[in-house]
Write a protein that binds this DNA or RNA. Structure first.
Lengths: 157, 157
DNA sequence: CCAGTTAGCTGTCTTAGACAGCTAAACACG
DNA sequence: CGTGTTTAGCTGTCTAAGACAGCTAACTGG
């Protein structure tokens, strides 16, 4: 492997750049992370991503579906069905927005609220499984790097 | 509303999830990363994940489906359909494994090979969009952190 | 009041992953 | 040699996500 980087504009093939690219590793890490999350939350009856929606509701209180769709950067159609699934599972309920006859407010049910402790517990376990062996300094370095990446990817959308 | 495109895309912070919210940030980064990848590869007719399969075939040559399933940590049924889709798109073909009558070898077609340059180009663009503003040192710090996380998550599966 | 916009729902399409059941080939062992 | 087991792959079914189109009902601004 030549340490000399070619300045000719040809970027070295990612496949040849063994172990190199962040994207590659990020994809692998992501896969593992989501698998672990799925495994942790499945026993609560939550599908991956739904725990985030529940956490949002716990934090922010009743929300209109349109706000939820915006917060999770998805489509109102997708959010409709996600909320329906959570409603069927008994974790959220909907009621008409008194301030706007078109809108519905989504809020947690008591059953959904009862999940909170467990979800937060599992969330901590997930975090521990992810960064458990890191020092606070290492963790915050990683976090800073991820936030750099986030800012990079968020720009130019 | 249907738009939701103007949303911040930020997944709300998980309560007071004590500790380092690496998981949270990872999820947000992942979402952005996959969206960018989708956007880049869509024009080639590749769905997210398929480019990885193609890269694997380019690097490793013809592979049995069972090996592909193992390499991508999925099951043979899913791999069957993924390969069928890529076959329908004309990027791979299958032929019986001469060494084992039960197995089929998956290999790139000329059309698939013709994609290689473009995929590698896009892959570089993705990498640049991800870490473009980082110094090599920062990039390798991030990579090391991600690999730590990968090792953490891989253990105990 | 009317036109245009917004909120939400439904239908349809494509993809993904999981799981079960099936065939056919390979293999191991008595 | 034959028989039973394992392996490779396909198909069907279920659930879920995301995109897109079309629709109704409600709100809003002129």
């Amino acid at each position: 492997m030549t340490s000399a980087r070619e300045g000719t504009g040809r970027v070295p093939s990612p496949t040849a750049a063994a172990g190199g690219p962040v994207s590659n590793t990020l994809i692998r890490v992501t896969r593992l992370h989501i698998m672990r999350a799925r495994q942790l939350f499945r026993e609560l009856g939550l599908h991956p991503g739904h725990e985030l929606l529940m956490m949002h509701l716990w934090d922010a209180g009743p929300q209109r579906q349109s706000d939820l769709a915006a917060a999770f950067d998805t489509d109102s159609a997708s959010m409709t069905r996600t909320v329906q699934r959570l409603e069927r599972a008994g974790f959220v309920r909907r009621r008409p927005d008194p301030a706007d006859g078109r809108a519905t407010l989504v809020e947690t049910t008591p059953a959904g609220l009862g999940l909170r402790r467990q979800v937060e517990q599992l969330w901590s376990e997930l975090e521990a499984a992810t960064t458990g062996d890191m020092t606070p300094a290492e963790r915050s370095t990683l976090l800073a790097g991820l936030e750099r990446v986030e800012a990079n990817l968020a720009q130019g959308r």
